[in-house]
Design a binder for these strands. Structure first.
Lengths: 184, 184
DNA sequence: CTCAAGATTTGAGCGCGAGTCTAACCCTTG
DNA sequence: CAAGGGTTAGACTCGCGCTCAAATCTTGAG
């Protein structure tokens, strides 16, 4: 039910774009009235946060399924692709930008958002551990996820392009994995 | 004249907070009408972008003056302090978050925003070069500025605190400067 | 100085969209 | 069937960004 609205929200963003998105666009696509949508979610902002949570949960699942069987080097490259925005219009990242600009005050929601970050970091740490056992994989993972966050904001701004962001992130990771290998 | 409005904008944000900021708050503090403010800046969003540009220009200048005489190790620590948000309410970073969430389409503005980033990176590269001559300082600087961008978004969200962000950034830089020293 | 042509400045008002409210509706349970 | 709580719609309110026409000020030529 809530999920149905959230799917409609994602569709609406695809259709009308993030800038022009009204809650009516979402309500129409979900086959209900604006009042009803707000009855469920309380406010437009909270609806968008929920949409981000859905989007992250989806990706979390797909990531697990997809990276599971891959050799670590390929998994690393794929994780970077999945994490970073595909373009300045990337819906998931536009939602992140929105949420960071207007952070929810609700502690539970913040915890869930943080949980998704940690999930990414844990996945990256697992790969790093396989590639370079001597490394402090958790620290490595957190730092490089944050690096990708920074690169993502560059892409969202329109200053950098997605391909360069991916290349930069991968190069940074490989360099550190390599030097760690040398020193061990 | 424009600067007068922008100062008023910064004051208004301090006073009423980012969430509740109306263009009337700015107009009042600048001693003019809302119509006039918009006559100059075209739209609320463009006004906020200009405010960010002023804020960055200010900091750019202060940074240069302050770091100039410092020994490199102290300069590094101070640069990290100046770059990262002081709290989740940090005005300059809230402006960044706003601009990333609603990026300007104007190429000139994007170029100026990118210019400020590059200015930070150049300053950091200069310090890195002094601390560890063997390093690719430009690459180091860009990566660590992006890392700080990512850490900043964590602080803005309310997930992480400013002190930890500073510690993480500094530790990451020192580690890499140290390992580069070892390998040279 | 005078006056016209523009630039600046105002504030009332428009439009849009988020959020509220009320009344109808449906579904369960006794 | 009746009663009552959850659900739904849509009209309404309200705040705010933005527009616009009119008022005021500036400039500079004659």
């Amino acid at each position: 039910m809530r999920a149905h609205v959230l799917k409609a929200a994602l569709q609406a963003i695809e259709d009308v774009g993030f800038e022009r998105l009204r809650v009516k666009d979402i309500a129409d696509r979900a086959g209900m009235s604006t009042g009803h949508v707000l009855y469920y979610f309380g406010s437009r902002d909270r609806l968008l946060v929920s949409t981000l949570l859905l989007s992250e949960a989806d990706l979390d699942e797909r990531r697990g399924a997809e990276l599971d069987g891959l050799p670590p080097e390929a998994a690393l490259a794929r994780l970077v692709e999945l994490y970073l925005p595909t373009s300045a219009q990337d819906v998931r990242w536009r939602l992140w930008a929105q949420v960071i600009a207007k952070p929810p005050s609700d502690a539970g929601t913040l915890a869930r958002l943080d949980g998704f970050f940690r999930s990414w970091a844990a996945e990256l740490a697992g790969i790093a551990r396989r590639l370079s056992p001597g490394l402090d994989a958790d620290d490595f993972a957190v730092r490089h996820c944050r690096l990708m966050d920074g690169l993502a904001s560059d892409v969202l701004l329109g200053t950098g392009d997605a391909a360069r962001a991916r290349a930069t992130a991968l190069a940074a990771m490989r360099r550190e994995l390599a030097t760690a290998g040398r020193s061990s």
